[in-house]
């Protein structure tokens, strides 16, 4: 039995072990995920091992603040694993800008998300704000998952320009790509401190045991 969970547009089965989203393009898989059918609605399993947002939900994140009809700026889309689920959540009326600077993964992304009418792929570095401004609109939610040393600066820059007021933003921090010599705890504390200067932190989740040394922050723009 697949039923609604506490989070909007995310479903879970009766023993609460797996989470699902409704497949926007029935019959099409994006990665090697499991597909369940119930009452003629097709659900795609959301694998916490390959998606950090799903890992956060498994770690009892109460709300991911991505709702139906939202416009999302997705920085670091890679081949579109998490991106496809975000696209499922926002639905036909919503929209996702999928940004990635690498042409190799963008090639896969274009093929993977071909049928989805609500995703626009952008081959662009998230660091180039002026260039991004020419290609996106204002957004309701920003999701960022890039393994860069400067990921916090990029996040703040993008929030400043593209996020609407009172909008939410999600940041996946990979401690190992910021500094391998420091302790992850120290890095997360520094980031928390830097985020609190201009934003309100709503939620903070570790992604153990699915991802090592990762932390997911959810913030709100003042």
């Amino acid at each position: 039995m697949i039923a609604k969970s506490k989070i909007f547009e995310v479903y879970e089965d009766s023993n609460r072990r797996n989470i699902y989203t409704v497949n926007l393009v029935p019959g099409k898989k994006v990665y090697e995920e499991f597909i369940a059918k119930q009452n003629n609605i097709e659900y795609r399993e959301w694998d916490p091992h390959s998606s950090k947002l799903a890992a956060a939900i498994h770690n009892r994140c109460q709300n991911i603040f991505i709702r139906k009809n939202d416009v999302v700026l997705y920085l670091g889309s890679s081949t579109g694993t998490t991106c496809s689920h975000v696209s499922d959540i926002v639905g036909k009326e919503g929209f996702v800008f999928a940004v990635d600077p690498a042409s190799r993964v963008m090639r896969d992304l274009i093929f993977n998300l071909e049928g989805r009418k609500n995703v626009a792929p952008l081959l662009e570095s998230a660091n180039h704000i002026e260039k991004l401004a020419e290609r996106v609109s204002l957004v309701d939610v920003i999701y960022q998952d890039i393994a860069q040393k400067s990921q916090l600066d990029i996040f703040l820059k993008n929030i400043n320009v593209f996020l609407k007021k009172q909008g939410y933003a999600i940041l996946c921090v990979k401690a190992r790509s910021i500094d391998v010599t420091k302790k992850p705890k120290q890095i997360f504390n520094d980031i928390k401190f830097a985020l609190e200067k201009t934003l309100t932190i709503v939620d903070q989740r570790t992604l153990e045991p699915f991802q090592k040394d990762h932390m997911l922050f959810i913030v709100k723009k003042k």
Partner: peptide
């Protein structure tokens, strides 16, 4: 000012246009 103008484009009509153009541009740059 940029905020208000970007807000102007957050509209169903422009979003679908943005998608078409972005796909075309991304295809060329890939």
């Amino acid at each position: 000012d940029l905020y208000k103008i970007l807000e102007f484009f957050k509209d169903k009509k422009y979003l679908s246009e943005l998608r078409k153009k972005n796909i075309a541009l991304t295809r060329v740059s890939v």
